[in-house]
Design a protein around this nucleic acid. Structure first.
Length: 415
RNA sequence: GCGGGUGUAGCUCAGUUGGUUAGAGCGCGUGGUUGUGGUCCAUGAGGCCGUCGGUUCAAAUCCGAUCACUCGCCCCA
C-alpha cells in the first residue's frame, strides 16, 4: 500500500483500538481518584531546557531520543518524552508549593525517537501519578499501592511482579558510587564497551546490563544495600513494611536502578514476562531533588508512569466491547421521516440508536445483525397507523408490537 | 544507533527448478427474498506481488538498495 504511510512508530487507533486504549486511561483515572489524585493536563511540548536539565545531560533520552525543534519565534521546544518534568514545571509555575501535598494524575502522548518494536512506539501514551511534598515513606507506599490497584483493576494483577530497590539518599548513593567504580575499575578488561562508557557517566546502570560478561563482573560487585546509611535503611524498611501490611508481594532487587538522574530512595518496577524485552509496564520512584533542581522550592516527590499500549496489549483483544445499539429499520422510504423522529426521541432518552441510512428492509436487518444490535425497531406504515412499532429481539428472534407511547419503558430491557 | 527475520487482495495466508491469465479462506457488493437478520446457494468487485534499480528472452520468484513491520541489543513505558 505503500504510498501514504503514518510516520514511523506512530499508529492510528480505530474505534476497536481506541476503545481499549481509552478503557485503560479511564480505569487509571478512576483508581487514581480513589486515592485522591486529580487529573492535570500539561502541554505536550515544553521549552527544551525543562527536559534537558531534569533528565540529566547524559541520559539516552536527552542525548538521542527527543523530538526537538525551533518554532517560528525562535524558541527551542521539545515534544515531551515523559511527563514528570512537565508536572514539576507546572507545580513551580502554578505556585502549588502553597498547597502540598499535591496529588496529580496525568495521561497522554509522549514522544521518543527510538527504534520501534512491539510495545515500543515513537508516539506512545502513558498514564502516571505524581505525589509532591510528601517526605515520608508512607507516600511511597501509597503511590506503589495505587499502581498495584490499577494493575489489579485492569485484570493484570497476577501477571506482573513488583521489583523494588532503594537507591538511598544522596550521601549513600555517593559512597556507593565510589565503591562501585573502584571495584569495576579492577575488572575493566571483562566489561563490555557499553559499560566502559557508562563507568564515568552513570556507573549504576552497569548493574542491570544484559551483557553476559558484565553480568559475571556485576555478580561479585559491592551491593548498594550494603552502603545505605542508617536513615536510608530505615526509610526502606518502612516502605517494605508498609507494602507487607497491604499484602503487596515484591522482590527486593538490589540491581534495579533508574536511568534518570533525579531519583533517590525508592525505585520500583512492575514487570511482566509476557511482552518480550518490553516487560516493564509500570515504573517509578522517588525524586526528592527534582523540583529544587528546576528552580522551585525544595520539594520531595514520588511517582510512576505506565505505558498505555503495553497495558492494553497485555489485556488482550476483545476485552473491551462496544455497547450494543438498537437498530432502526423502516419498512420503506415512505416512513423515513417518522423513523428519524423516533430515533431522535429515543436518543434523547439515552438509548443508543443506529440508523442504517439506506437500503431496503432486508438489507437493514442484515446490517443490524452485523453491528451486533441488541434489538431492531421496525417502523412500518400499518403499525404507525395503529400507533405502534415492531420491536424485535435480535438475540432470541422474538418480535412484539409495542405502543409508541410505551416504547421507552419496553426498551429498558435492551439498555 | 547496531544485528537477525518478514513484506503477495481489507484480514490470515498459498504460489513448484524463474515461464506467459497470481490463487484460497474470511470479509465486502449484488441476487435468490418489493415488510424481517443470523444459515445456505449463486454471482461480482478488489493486486504496479512494499518501493526503486539490476540480472535474464522472461522476475512475485534471483541480486542490490530503500521503506515499513517484527525479534534481540542499547535504552525505556
Amino acid at each position: 500500500m505503500a504510498a501514504l504511510q503514518p510516520v514511523r512508530g506512530t499508529h492510528d487507533y480505530l474505534p476497536d483500538d481506541s476503545r481499549a486504549h481509552r478503557a485503560v486511561e479511564d480505569i487509571a483515572r478512576e483508581v487514581a481518584e480513589r486515592f485522591g489524585f486529580g487529573e492535570i493536563i500539561t502541554p505536550i511540548f515544553e521549552f527544551t531546557e525543562v527536559f534537558a536539565r531534569t533528565l540529566g545531560d547524559t541520559s539516552d533520552i536527552v542525548t538521542k531520543e527527543m523530538y526537538t525543534f525551533e518554532d517560528r519565534s525562535g524558541d527551542r521546544l521539545t515534544l515531551r518524552p515523559e511527563n514528570t518534568a512537565g508536572v514539576a514545571r507546572a507545580f513551580i509555575s502554578g505556585g502549588l508549593a502553597q498547597s502540598v501535598p499535591v496529588k496529580l494524575f496525568y495521561r497522554g502522548p509522549m514522544f521518543r525517537h527510538e527504534r520501534p518494536q512491539k510495545g515500543r512506539l515513537r508516539q506512545f501514551h502513558q498514564v502516571g501519578v505524581e505525589l509532591l511534598g510528601v517526605e515520608g515513606p508512607l507516600g511511597d507506599v501509597d503511590v506503589i499501592s495505587l499502581g498495584y490497584q490499577l494493575l489489579d483493576a485492569l485484570g493484570l494483577g497476577g501477571r506482573s511482579i513488583l521489583h523494588l530497590n532503594s537507591l538511598g539518599d544522596p550521601e549513600s548513593r555517593q559512597v556507593y558510587r565510589e565503591a562501585l567504580v573502584a571495584y569495576l575499575s579492577g575488572h575493566k578488561e571483562r566489561l563490555s564497551e557499553d559499560s566502559l562508557n557508562r563507568m564515568e557517566r552513570n556507573p549504576l546502570r552497569i548493574l542491570d546490563s544484559k551483557d553476559e560478561g558484565d553480568r559475571e563482573v556485576v555478580a561479585d560487585a559491592p551491593l548498594l544495600s550494603d552502603h545505605l546509611n542508617a536513615a536510608s535503611r530505615a526509610f526502606l524498611e518502612r516502605v517494605t513494611g508498609g507494602l507487607t501490611d497491604l499484602g503487596i508481594a515484591f522482590e527486593y532487587d538490589p540491581k534495579l536502578v533508574r536511568g534518570l538522574d533525579y531519583y533517590c530512595h525508592t525505585a520500583f518496577e512492575f514487570v511482566t514476562t509476557d511482552l518480550g524485552s518490553q516487560g516493564t509496564i509500570l515504573a517509578g520512584g522517588r525524586y526528592d531533588g527534582l523540583v529544587k533542581q528546576m528552580g522551585g522550592p525544595p520539594t520531595p516527590g514520588i511517582g510512576w508512569a505506565a505505558g498505555v499500549e503495553r497495558l492494553a496489549m497485555l489485556r488482550g483483544e476483545g476485552t473491551v466491547t462496544a455497547p450494543r445499539p438498537i437498530a432502526m429499520v423502516p419498512t420503506g422510504a415512505d416512513v423515513e421521516s417518522e423513523t428519524i423522529t423516533l430515533a431522535d426521541r429515543l436518543r434523547r432518552a439515552g438509548f443508543i440508536l443506529d440508523l442504517g441510512y439506506s437500503g431496503n428492509m432486508g438489507k437493514r436487518m442484515k446490517r443490524a445483525n452485523k453491528i451486533n444490535a441488541r434489538a431492531a425497531i421496525i417502523v412500518g406504515g400499518d403499525e404507525l397507523a395503529q400507533g405502534t412499532v415492531g420491536v424485535r429481539d435480535l438475540d432470541s428472534g422474538d418480535q412484539e408490537t409495542v405502543a409508541l407511547s410505551a416504547l421507552e419503558a419496553f426498551l429498558a430491557r435492551f439498555r
